[in-house]
Design a protein around this nucleic acid. Structure first.
Lengths: 215, 215
DNA sequence: GAAGCAAACTGAGACGAATTCAGTTTAGAT
DNA sequence: ATCTAAACTGAATTCGTCTCAGTTTGCTTC
């Protein structure tokens, strides 16, 4: 669940990269990316504005990095969660649950990811931004691919009664990530409750023969 | 389906507002809002850059207007589609179908809406922007409310076997609008195909006793 | 414990896109 | 022909991002 890792394979101990990313997640997530001034983040961290450029090529580069880390975590969570499951219905439930293992900051990070997906569509001018963008894209593809694989297994063994695995995977993803639009920590529903309800909804969506066990 | 109307209740015949909006939808939708230079739109329309400020207070004001128009159309489409239906299952199918009545430009407009929903979360500095933002928010609420009402009817008469009408409505909305993330005119699936598949998926999501008739 | 070195950092200013300002032009009504 | 409001313009301003040309810091090696 570590939100942070990156770049120089061995991070210098006095590096502020992790702090910057954490601060940026809070600000971007709370107030929005455009609305947040890059300088504010420098102030929060306690460094000069230009010091940020020691760690990131640009504000967008920082955003893309945050998105890439989230996507990468998402892939890992999915793998960890589904590898244990032995049938497609259980795997689906586990996959959905893995999407909602989130600290408050993780929730912000996922909201940021959702809100800026469109950035991944068009080419970036600078080297590192483009690099992160392409990484993000392939991670997105990997996620779609993994979910598609899960659905396909269910179709093959007759558990899921839908036709198109890829399309169903996209529907499931839309359903699952849509939550970050309205979820707020301390809101009406806890993540535990959301997990349960969403797992059931996901099962219905793929017309699963097996409905997940109530918590 | 008219994409355009607005402001001065009686639009002057030489006003270029409609052209500006149409151009902005194309550009914002195709290349992204941040990536599109305000000046480019002026060039496309064939006016000086500053003439844009005769129509919109800012670039964001234009974006918010585009979003508000789309939300407003969406409300109308929903009403028109569902008023004809006589049972909740049919209403759901009609509501889903109404979401995919879209010209290529409408598709772009809906993508823009999805990609910039986060703008609605935080206060805007200028008068007109804030006005449009609040309009957008209440339209979003209205849409959620309308879908919730539809689901509630289905729950009440036993057609839909889910508990929480609001939550289910949000799930349906996430499912339905998620399509604009990947849909492209001339892509693998036509809107007709999407409509059918989504209507079925929506029915499953609310555990509908009645499955929509195949086209 | 001084020299060397790379990472971390800084202030001053350049840059670019959005926006403001101070008007001018245009089309239609009187 | 005159008047008016909408439509428009070029020049100048603003503001946030980012570049540049260095300086400081802390660790390593001799």
């Amino acid at each position: 669940m570590s939100t942070v890792d990156n770049a120089p394979r061995t991070e210098s101990p006095r590096s502020k990269r992790a702090v910057i990313i954490a601060t940026a997640i809070d600000r971007f997530g709370e107030e929005g990316f455009e609305h947040t001034k890059w300088a504010t983040i420098a102030d929060d961290v306690g460094i000069g504005q230009t010091a940020l450029y020691h760690y990131f090529e640009s504000k967008v580069h920082c955003l893309l990095t945050i998105m890439r880390l989230e996507l990468s975590n998402s892939v890992e969570r999915f793998k960890a969660a589904t590898s244990a499951a032995d049938d497609p219905a259980a795997a689906l439930t586990a996959a959905v649950a893995s999407a909602y293992e989130a600290s408050p900051r993780d929730a912000l990070q996922r909201r940021i990811l959702q809100n800026h997906m469109d950035l991944l569509a068009t080419k970036r001018p600078s080297k590192k931004e483009e690099e992160e963008r392409l990484l993000c894209r392939s991670l997105v593809q990997e996620i779609e691919h993994n979910w598609t694989g899960l659905v396909q297994k269910g179709i093959d063994d007759g558990t899921f009664r839908v036709d198109d695995a890829l399309l169903s995977a996209r529907m499931l993803l839309a359903l699952v990530v849509g939550v970050w639009r309205w979820y707020r920590p301390g809101g009406e529903m806890t993540l535990e409750q959301i997990t349960e309800v969403m797992a059931e909804a996901a099962a219905r969506l793929v017309d699963s023969a097996e409905v997940p066990a109530r918590a």
